[in-house]
Simulated scan of single mutants.
Amino acid sequence: MSKAADAAVALEQAFMRAAPPSKNKRMSEDAWLKALNQFHAEAREIRRRHSLGFLARAKAAYLLQQKLIAAGIHADIVRKVVFSLILSAFSGEK
């Protein structure tokens, strides 16, 4: 697998740990923000560990998007998660 594919798998696992899907109830706004912060912290570590350059970060974000949609997460939520990932953990230099 490529660096981007490995990173996408790690990102998917990090997201599922931070915000496990629940069919019964919706997360509160505070819980959602806490989960996103946890995910972004892990994503920064994944970016560093995998030494992702610009194109690899873009590919990892795209692959993560596809993986989350395939896991049954609503496309609108996936779009927001990936956008926040790019802004908070994948933008700029290391």
Results as ranks from 00 to 15, higher is better:
H40D: 10
Y62G: 02
R49F: 12
I77H: 11
I86W: 10
R49N: 15
V81W: 11
A71H: 02
A71W: 01
D76E: 15
A61S: 15
A56E: 13
L85D: 11
A5N: 04
L63R: 01
I77Q: 13
I73L: 15
L52C: 08
K34G: 01
F54K: 09
S2H: 01
N24T: 10
K34I: 05
M1C: 01
S51L: 09
F54R: 06
F15H: 11
A18G: 12
E42N: 10
L55A: 10
G92S: 12
I73Q: 11
M16Q: 14
E93A: 13
R47M: 10
R47I: 11
A19I: 04
A41D: 10
N24R: 14
G92H: 07
A10C: 05
Q66N: 03
A8N: 03
L68C: 08
M16R: 14
S2N: 06
S2T: 08
E12I: 00
S51C: 04
A61N: 05
A70Q: 01
R49I: 08
A19L: 14
E29F: 09
P20E: 07
M1F: 01
V9E: 02
L63G: 00
S2V: 00
N37V: 02
W32L: 11
A7I: 09
G53S: 10
Y62T: 08
A41F: 07
F15V: 01
V81G: 08
L64A: 04
L87S: 15
S91P: 01
V9Q: 02
H74A: 14
A4T: 02
K34D: 08
A70H: 00
